[in-house]
Design a protein around this nucleic acid. Structure first.
Length: 438
RNA sequence: UCCCCAGUAGCUCAAUUGGCAGAGCGGGUGACUGUUAAUCACUAGGUUGGCGGUUCGAGUCCGUCCUGGGGAGCCA
């Protein structure tokens, strides 16, 4: 008999097939049971009728509990009453293994309870949908860069020093010395760009910041393209094209998953190039004015020179129904490697991209300082250990060129696309300040 | 690190001013041949996060600790 996956059942209407999976839920009467069976590719309703199966098999079907693993044979048929439009009329079934007292019931549960059982929560419909969207996004990002002549350039997880001296790092034992887990592959990607012209690094990064918000993980994934011979406009264009590409791709291939998540896709379908661009000076003006007009609202105070908080990002992106770029941030709030604007030496040639619908910062990027002596001066100004950057400075000694890149936070982007309130569901096993199990 | 909030049955929650600790779901038993988180009946299930205090009496008030959640700072 033909073994098929649930997602392919519509192509086997009228045929006898076998599926193997787990019992998601069952309901019904003393003579007719509706078994919802999931096999990883989807969920199908299987009809177990007493007069078809006989006493023994029907009693077995009725005794099956949630998450019992099983194999079912039956006839595929289309039926409007079945969730998904297709169902399986059961002719034979076999239990593979029992599941007693499965803790995640079809009713509601609190997030701490579910996170403690993340290894099981992954089986639930919405979590299943989230991680399929994650898969699609990773695939789309790789396709986007691969199709444009970028080389995948993997950078190390172990690093001897901080990229940005200010941020907390995870220290680990490294034989007789210590190392840090990377917080960005960027500096190494710059070396890659000087070798290959266009590269991207895609992997996990680690931040030991004691952040306890819906936008933070201690371990998260980031894609960082780095391009030789590119300017600020070129970088923003690249970010814009990538964003439009991945949004379209998820809408096209994962509409079922978005539906399972009850995501209203209209705001995503409305996203078109170009995205609005705001100079930091304009953004600061908007925020100062907003704070003036909303004196009772807490957390909106702002003065020129400040960095944005979560609330500020929402105020800035609210008027637009597409992502927004903020450019030319003040140099004193940005890292040492960002190149200054020659016309405005107090500003950097950098940008952030804020997602629509209050998603916050999804992308941060910049043109890099390419002059050796200026970079040395910046390292001194930021009080960073010069000897840790000798190899990085070599990139400016041997044929330095204008270049730049950006980083996209994968989980934040998944959260934005899926319309969920918290990014912890965007990764199989989230690592947070007070949560490292399972 | 700081600020705010929460902790009561396996889960989600209720309990008036300090006065007999409850419901729904899940589990168990039974009824039902088209259910959509099926429905209905019956049933078992509790050291109210820990310790200490106030009180005739504390789930409720006070102190303290623990655990978790949200936010700030910082960031993707």
């Amino acid at each position: 008999m033909k073994r098929v996956y649930v997602e392919d059942l519509s192509r086997h209407t009228g045929e006898q097939v076998e599926i193997a999976g787990w019992l998601y839920n069952q309901r019904g009467t003393a003579k007719l049971r509706f078994l919802l069976v999931r096999d990883g590719s989807g969920i199908v309703q299987c009809i177990a009728a007493k007069n078809e199966l006989g006493e023994g098999l029907f009693a077995l079907a009725r005794s099956l509990t949630q998450e019992t693993s099983l194999a079912i044979r039956g006839t595929v048929r289309a039926d409007e009453r079945a969730p998904g439009g297709y169902e399986l009329l059961v002719t034979d079934l076999a239990k593979i293994n029992d599941a007693h007292d499965y803790p995640i019931t079809p009713k509601e549960h609190g997030t701490p309870f579910l996170l403690d059982r993340r290894h099981l929560w992954l089986r639930s419909k919405k979590q299943h949908a989230m991680l399929r969207i994650r898969h699609e996004l990773i695939w789309a990002i790789r396709d986007f860069f691969n199709n444009r002549g970028f080389i995948c350039f993997d950078t190390p997880m172990f690093t001897p020093n901080a990229v940005e001296g200010t941020t907390d790092l995870f220290a680990v034992n490294y034989f007789d010395t210590s190392a840090y887990l990377t917080q960005s592959g960027q500096l190494y990607a710059e070396a890659g760009a000087m070798a290959h012209g266009r590269v991207y690094t895609f992997g996990p990064t680690f931040r030991a910041e004691k952040s306890k918000t819906r936008r933070h993980l201690t371990e998260f994934w980031m894609v960082e393209p780095e391009v030789a011979f590119i300017d600020l406009d070129g970088l923003i264009e690249l970010a814009e094209e990538m964003t439009v590409y991945i949004v379209e791709r998820v809408l096209e291939r994962r509409c079922n998953e978005l539906a399972d998540l009850e995501r209203d896709t209209a705001p995503l379908e409305a996203i078109r190039r170009p995205f609005p661009r705001l100079h930091y000076d304009e953004a600061a003006e908007i925020l100062v004015e907003y704070a003036k007009q909303h004196p009772d609202e807490g957390g909106v105070e702002f003065k020129h020179g400040d960095d944005f908080g979560g609330r500020h990002e929402t105020i800035l992106s609210d008027p637009y129904h597409r992502p927004v770029f903020i450019t030319h941030f003040p140099a004193q709030i940005k890292p040492f490697y960002m190149k200054r604007d020659p016309d405005r030496p107090d500003c950097v040639l950098g940008f952030d991209m804020l997602g629509s619908e209050g998603a916050g910062e999804l992308i941060g990027g910049s043109v890099r300082e390419d002059d050796h002596d200026t970079l040395v001066q910046r390292i001194r100004e930021h009080d960073l250990p010069m000897d840790a950057f000798d190899w990085y400075l070599d990139l400016r000694k041997y044929g330095s060129v204008p270049h730049g890149g950006f980083g996209l936070g994968l989980e934040r982007t998944i959260t934005w696309l899926s319309g969920r309130p918290h990014l912890r569901e965007a990764i199989p096993f989230p690592r947070m300040l007070y949560r490292m199990r399972p």
